[in-house]
Simulated assay, not measured.
Amino acid sequence: MSGPVVVGVDGSRSNLTVVEAAARQAERLGVGLELMQVIGWPSGGTPSAVPSWDAGRTGGRASSSGALAAAERCAHSAAPGVRISREVLVGEPGNVLSAESYRASLTVVGSNGTRGHGTLRDDSLAGRLSARATGPLLVVRGRPNPAGPVLLAVHGTSTLREAAEFAFAEASLRGADLVAVHLRPAVATRPYGESGAAAAADDEDFALAETLSELRKRYPDVTLRCRRPQGRSRRALVEASGDSQLLVVGVRGRSRFGGGLLDPVGRTALRQADCPVALVRC
């Protein structure tokens, strides 16, 4: 995609780390960076579930917001060559950013709203966007290792293709290795003794081999390693994230009711990973 990287700005000190990560991502992708501040509706005004698309929209230079000015200085320092624009919108942040995500190459937010051991609340902005965003979502969290690999969580054929392509592209842009962590499904028993998990694993193995073979040809500069953890595979994924610079997780498409279908792997990544997490809608 050629759309901008869109990053939510909230004025907090921790948010500057998010802005910095978004600026560097825009630099890698060769696209512009859009700093977006969403202001809630005044008391007694229009309900926050309905965003405004004209009230408060400022474009590049009209906004005098101190938060946006600080964010722009931070972004320029991190990626001097990136074109930066600023916008102020009125509405509920999750709704507004999810609606804007359809035109973005990437939407970036922080993992603020954490509690105990860095876990993420479902009602945080990142938690809401994980179910609503149309395009790829980057949640900045943890302590990434800039020299570490990009991780790809392989957990079902329905979440493989788009996520794998995103992970290969990121590894290539970052000059990093790619580690595909193949998470086995939980054991289920079919009639006549056939293992449902074994049958699903066979399907996944075939899809994984076919997809990775094609992508390795497209990205010959990326060194791919595959890992098949035993036992608690999601725990192994979290542990591997401690020495990685990015974790890529595929999530199933939006439901007809407007919400996403974030599975246990996606929830584990958002709540426990020790590096930024990219959620890719599949």
Rank of each mutant, 00 (worst) to 15 (best):
T159N: 12
M36V: 13
R61V: 11
G11R: 06
Q37R: 08
R57S: 13
L208A: 10
V108K: 09
V181S: 03
H117A: 04
S98T: 06
S101R: 05
R115S: 08
E194H: 13
D274F: 07
S85N: 10
N95A: 11
V238W: 09
D123Q: 02
F166H: 13
G40D: 14
T268A: 13
T268E: 06
W41D: 01
G3A: 00
A201K: 04
P80L: 04
R218C: 11
V150A: 04
H76T: 12
P264D: 09
V6T: 13
G8A: 15
R254Q: 11
L151G: 08
E165Y: 04
V5C: 02
A22L: 05
R141Q: 12
L247V: 12
Q272M: 12
A198L: 15
L215V: 05
E214F: 07
C282E: 11
G266S: 07
R128M: 15
L152I: 09
A167N: 10
V277T: 01
T157H: 02
Q272T: 10
L160G: 01
T223G: 12
S130E: 03
A169M: 12
S101G: 06
S98K: 09
P264M: 04
E34W: 05
R235V: 10
T134V: 05
A153C: 13
V108H: 14
G116I: 01
R83H: 13
A169H: 11
P144V: 00
P185K: 14
R235I: 08
V31Q: 03
G81S: 14
G113W: 03
R57N: 03
